[in-house]
Write a protein that binds this DNA or RNA. Structure first.
Lengths: 240, 240
DNA sequence: AAGTGGTCTAGACCACGTA
DNA sequence: ACGTGGTCTAGACCACTTG
């Protein structure tokens, strides 16, 4: 186990593990081989394997469970909630809104979509529009765009069959695991349509969140534009 | 070096180091004793000390420099920028606005301030109001509240003497190091005064950021309420 | 009891910064 | 040349999970 000199061994092992995950040799939720086995196979010491694994754990890619094994993280609801969902109520508690898809279509991408999702010319996209409600009040309007090439099968679904927690769904149905996201947040005024759906006055101020979600290897997968009524809820960000 | 059974050694060492930092036995910017010396003094192995230190490095409390030593992080401009400043331009580049203090006063706290800053009854606060400009256009209005007890000396400053990068200033002049912050973001409409200062129409949508900044041991130090014009700038949040 | 990850040790050698 | 952190090894024992 020595491909490249001058690159630390544990980094090489780290990359090797990432590769196996990206190539789906090991799938989300599964355990990877034990430390001792990896060390033996790769002909390095246990400590070196540990260091590679620890690095991936701190990057939210692996999960270690004493006595059980080391697992590839899945997009279970817990993770989705704690890493990708930022809306809290006035007490600072995270609240999961209920979703309702209002339209599911395929169409040509906008310029923004081509750029953000790095689409090829002539590539199409799938567009989901949905509302997200808390206690029968619509809080968020989401406009979600996905590359047609990867998500074609999605169109076979009835719009009512699309689940609330999309990242889990992407993983289970399309083998796409969202790993990171960039968000840009600004403020805008509710349009006439927004106002009607959200039951607020026209020109009510809304949060506008533009999120680009990516896989482990940095490929952009989903562009999500959200408008959010922050009368009773906030976007929460804690900086460490 | 064994105070408590059943608590891992490296955790005990970690806590010990944090204590030294909190008690100002070692100051920000200084190097802590070398690994070998710590290991010797504490009568543990080098690897154990390393593990304690690594944990603090990943928590943004220490900084290791090969060949030089391990240093306590300071609030230099780089850190302030990368951890506590989220405003980017349309190209996603961080931009530091220039600040101008419009008022520096002492007064009784509001209810919100008492609660957030955990103030004692009858405690006073110091209040700073400032504008933040980029290219001669005011982008942000900041309202900053500090506990009077800690920051009394601040009042001796002329309002023009207060520097742009406050967290660095708190550290150097008051021995207070900001380590983490909680932010709640919402949208609101510009008031008549806001609109005038920011040169936008009345009822222009603004981002409203409520930030509570804390020290290493979790004591709330600063409440900062910011209104931000997001016509040309965004609040950036990247989730890993 | 066997297998997993978690802690801890003792020591080697390397890479970097400073004098 | 010396001291610092960075990598790597080989092995011990502990704590947790499962059969």
């Amino acid at each position: 186990m020595l491909f490249e000199r001058s690159i630390p061994l544990y980094i090489q092992i780290r990359e090797l593990l990432i590769d196996k995950i990206n190539k789906k040799e090991w799938l989300p939720g599964e355990a990877i081989p034990s430390e001792t086995i990896l060390a033996k196979n790769l002909n390095v010491s246990l400590g070196t394997v540990r260091k590679a694994i620890e690095s991936l754990v701190s990057n939210n890619i692996l999960d270690r469970k004493q006595g059980k094994g080391t697992f590839i993280k899945t997009h279970d609801i817990h993770r989705a909630l704690f890493h990708f969902f930022h809306i809290v109520n006035k007490n600072g508690e995270k609240v999961i809104p209920h979703s309702k898809v209002t339209s599911l279509t395929e169409r040509a991408p906008t310029k923004q979509e081509v750029k953000k999702l790095q689409l090829k010319t002539n590539a199409k996209v799938i567009n989901i529009v949905r509302t997200r409600d808390i206690e029968d009040k619509t809080i968020i309007l989401e406009n979600i765009t996905l590359p047609h090439a990867i998500f074609v099968q999605l169109l076979k679904n009835n719009k009512n069959e699309i689940p609330n927690t999309l990242y889990e769904f992407y993983e289970n149905s399309f083998g796409v695991t969202i790993h990171s996201a960039k968000e840009r947040i600004s403020a805008l005024l509710a349009s006439k349509e927004d106002a009607k759906i959200m039951d607020v006055p026209e020109s009510h101020p809304l949060l506008y969140i533009e999120r680009l979600a990516q896989t482990l290897d940095g490929k952009p997968i989903e562009l999500r534009l959200s408008k959010c009524n922050t009368e009773n809820y906030y976007y929460d960000n804690t900086v460490l």
